[in-house]
Amino acid sequence: MSIDSMFVHKMWDDDELKKMVDGGVPFPMLSDAGGKVGKVYGVYDENNGVETRGRFIIDPDGVVQGYEVLTPPVGRNVNETIRQIQAFQLVRETGGAEATPSGWRPGKQTLKPGIDLVGKVWEVWKTENAFD
Protein backbone atom coordinates (compact mmCIF):
# COMPACT_ATOMS: atom_id res chain seq x y z
CA MET A 1 0.00 0.00 0.00
CA SER A 2 1.28 3.43 -0.94
CA ILE A 3 -0.12 6.89 -1.70
CA ASP A 4 0.13 6.17 -5.44
CA SER A 5 -3.07 5.69 -7.41
CA MET A 6 -4.05 2.27 -8.74
CA PHE A 7 -3.22 3.61 -12.22
CA VAL A 8 0.39 4.19 -11.20
CA HIS A 9 0.42 0.73 -9.55
CA LYS A 10 -0.60 -0.74 -12.91
CA MET A 11 2.13 1.12 -14.79
CA TRP A 12 4.76 0.11 -12.24
CA ASP A 13 3.68 -3.52 -12.47
CA ASP A 14 3.55 -3.42 -16.30
CA ASP A 15 6.78 -1.49 -16.84
CA GLU A 16 9.08 -2.76 -14.14
CA LEU A 17 7.79 -5.38 -11.70
CA LYS A 18 6.92 -7.86 -14.44
CA LYS A 19 10.64 -7.84 -15.29
CA MET A 20 11.37 -9.00 -11.72
CA VAL A 21 8.42 -11.31 -11.03
CA ASP A 22 7.00 -13.60 -13.71
CA GLY A 23 3.43 -12.46 -14.43
CA GLY A 24 3.74 -9.39 -12.21
CA VAL A 25 2.91 -8.92 -8.55
CA PRO A 26 0.35 -11.60 -7.56
CA PHE A 27 -1.15 -9.83 -4.53
CA PRO A 28 -3.27 -6.63 -4.34
CA MET A 29 -1.36 -3.34 -4.69
CA LEU A 30 -3.48 -0.89 -2.71
CA SER A 31 -3.86 2.86 -3.03
CA ASP A 32 -3.97 5.14 0.01
CA ALA A 33 -4.25 8.59 -1.59
CA GLY A 34 -3.99 11.20 1.15
CA GLY A 35 -2.56 8.67 3.61
CA LYS A 36 -5.89 8.17 5.40
CA VAL A 37 -5.23 4.52 6.16
CA GLY A 38 -1.54 5.13 6.88
CA LYS A 39 -2.48 7.75 9.48
CA VAL A 40 -4.66 5.26 11.36
CA TYR A 41 -1.78 2.76 11.31
CA GLY A 42 0.75 5.38 12.43
CA VAL A 43 2.96 5.07 9.35
CA TYR A 44 2.00 8.16 7.33
CA ASP A 45 4.73 10.81 7.19
CA GLU A 46 2.78 14.08 6.98
CA ASN A 47 5.88 16.20 6.29
CA ASN A 48 6.79 14.28 3.15
CA GLY A 49 3.32 13.10 2.18
CA VAL A 50 4.34 9.45 1.91
CA GLU A 51 4.03 6.24 3.90
CA THR A 52 7.06 4.97 5.80
CA ARG A 53 8.09 1.32 5.48
CA GLY A 54 5.52 -0.19 7.83
CA ARG A 55 4.84 -3.92 7.87
CA PHE A 56 2.04 -5.52 9.90
CA ILE A 57 1.43 -9.21 10.58
CA ILE A 58 -2.32 -9.76 11.05
CA ASP A 59 -3.66 -13.12 12.26
CA PRO A 60 -6.88 -14.85 11.10
CA ASP A 61 -8.84 -13.10 13.89
CA GLY A 62 -7.78 -9.67 12.61
CA VAL A 63 -5.39 -9.16 15.53
CA VAL A 64 -2.06 -7.50 14.81
CA GLN A 65 0.66 -9.80 16.14
CA GLY A 66 3.67 -7.74 15.14
CA TYR A 67 4.86 -4.79 13.14
CA GLU A 68 8.05 -3.15 11.96
CA VAL A 69 8.44 0.39 10.70
CA LEU A 70 11.56 1.70 8.95
CA THR A 71 12.45 5.05 7.44
CA PRO A 72 12.46 4.99 3.62
CA PRO A 73 16.19 4.49 2.83
CA VAL A 74 16.44 0.99 4.37
CA GLY A 75 14.64 -1.99 2.87
CA ARG A 76 13.17 -4.94 4.71
CA ASN A 77 14.23 -8.54 5.28
CA VAL A 78 11.54 -10.81 3.89
CA ASN A 79 13.13 -13.92 5.49
CA GLU A 80 12.70 -12.38 8.93
CA THR A 81 9.07 -11.52 8.19
CA ILE A 82 8.38 -15.12 7.08
CA ARG A 83 10.17 -16.46 10.18
CA GLN A 84 7.94 -14.33 12.41
CA ILE A 85 4.79 -15.51 10.64
CA GLN A 86 5.92 -19.15 11.07
CA ALA A 87 6.53 -18.49 14.77
CA PHE A 88 3.11 -16.87 15.28
CA GLN A 89 1.47 -19.75 13.40
CA LEU A 90 3.19 -22.29 15.66
CA VAL A 91 2.09 -20.44 18.79
CA ARG A 92 -1.47 -20.31 17.46
CA GLU A 93 -1.50 -24.01 16.50
CA THR A 94 -0.35 -25.04 19.97
CA GLY A 95 -2.89 -22.74 21.61
CA GLY A 96 -0.07 -20.90 23.35
CA ALA A 97 1.37 -24.08 24.93
CA GLU A 98 4.62 -23.47 23.06
CA ALA A 99 6.60 -20.26 22.66
CA THR A 100 9.51 -19.47 20.39
CA PRO A 101 12.63 -18.11 22.10
CA SER A 102 15.06 -15.67 20.49
CA GLY A 103 16.61 -16.99 17.29
CA TRP A 104 13.93 -19.66 16.77
CA ARG A 105 13.50 -21.01 13.26
CA PRO A 106 11.28 -23.93 12.15
CA GLY A 107 12.92 -27.11 13.45
CA LYS A 108 14.63 -25.39 16.38
CA GLN A 109 13.56 -26.03 19.94
CA THR A 110 10.52 -24.23 21.34
CA LEU A 111 9.83 -23.50 25.00
CA LYS A 112 6.81 -24.67 27.00
CA PRO A 113 5.94 -21.80 29.32
CA GLY A 114 4.90 -22.94 32.80
CA ILE A 115 6.02 -23.28 36.38
CA ASP A 116 8.60 -25.94 35.51
CA LEU A 117 10.41 -23.53 33.22
CA VAL A 118 10.88 -20.79 35.81
CA GLY A 119 14.60 -20.37 36.42
CA LYS A 120 15.35 -23.26 34.04
CA VAL A 121 15.48 -21.51 30.67
CA TRP A 122 19.31 -21.57 30.85
CA GLU A 123 19.18 -25.37 30.87
CA VAL A 124 17.23 -25.69 27.63
CA TRP A 125 18.18 -22.53 25.74
CA LYS A 126 21.76 -21.37 25.13
CA THR A 127 22.80 -17.90 23.97
CA GLU A 128 24.22 -19.27 20.71
CA ASN A 129 20.63 -20.26 19.86
CA ALA A 130 19.88 -16.55 19.44
CA PHE A 131 21.94 -16.57 16.24
CA ASP A 132 21.56 -18.42 12.95
Binding site: M1, S2, I3, D4, M6, F7, V8, H9, K10, M11, W12, D13, G23, G24, V25, P26, F27, P28, M29, L30, S31, D32, G38, Y41, V43, N48, V50, E51, T52, R53, G54, R55, F56, I57, I58, D59, P60, D61, G62, P72, R76, T81, I85, F88, Q89
Partner: peptide
Protein backbone atom coordinates in the same frame (compact mmCIF):
# COMPACT_ATOMS: atom_id res chain seq x y z
CA UNK B 1 -8.91 0.69 -4.23
CA UNK B 2 -6.07 -1.15 -5.86
CA UNK B 3 -4.65 -3.09 -8.76
CA UNK B 4 -4.13 -6.85 -9.02
CA UNK B 5 -3.22 -8.96 -12.04
CA UNK B 6 -4.76 -6.83 -14.78
CA UNK B 7 -7.80 -5.62 -12.85
CA UNK B 8 -8.73 -2.64 -10.74
CA UNK B 9 -10.16 -3.86 -7.46
CA UNK B 10 -11.58 -2.76 -4.11
CA UNK B 11 -10.22 -4.47 -1.04
CA UNK B 12 -11.68 -4.52 2.46
CA UNK B 13 -9.30 -5.80 5.10
CA UNK B 14 -12.04 -7.57 7.09
CA UNK B 15 -12.84 -9.73 4.04
CA UNK B 16 -9.55 -11.50 4.82
CA UNK B 17 -10.63 -12.65 8.30
CA UNK B 18 -9.69 -16.33 8.61
CA UNK B 19 -6.41 -15.81 6.75
CA UNK B 20 -2.99 -14.52 7.73
CA UNK B 21 -2.41 -11.09 6.21
CA UNK B 22 0.83 -9.22 5.67
CA UNK B 23 0.11 -5.53 5.20
CA UNK B 24 3.03 -3.52 3.80
CA UNK B 25 3.31 0.23 3.42
CA UNK B 26 6.07 1.78 1.28
CA UNK B 27 7.00 5.32 0.24
CA UNK B 28 6.10 5.06 -3.42
CA UNK B 29 5.93 3.15 -6.67
Amino acid sequence: PGYQKGEFINVKLSDYLGKWVLLCFYPGD
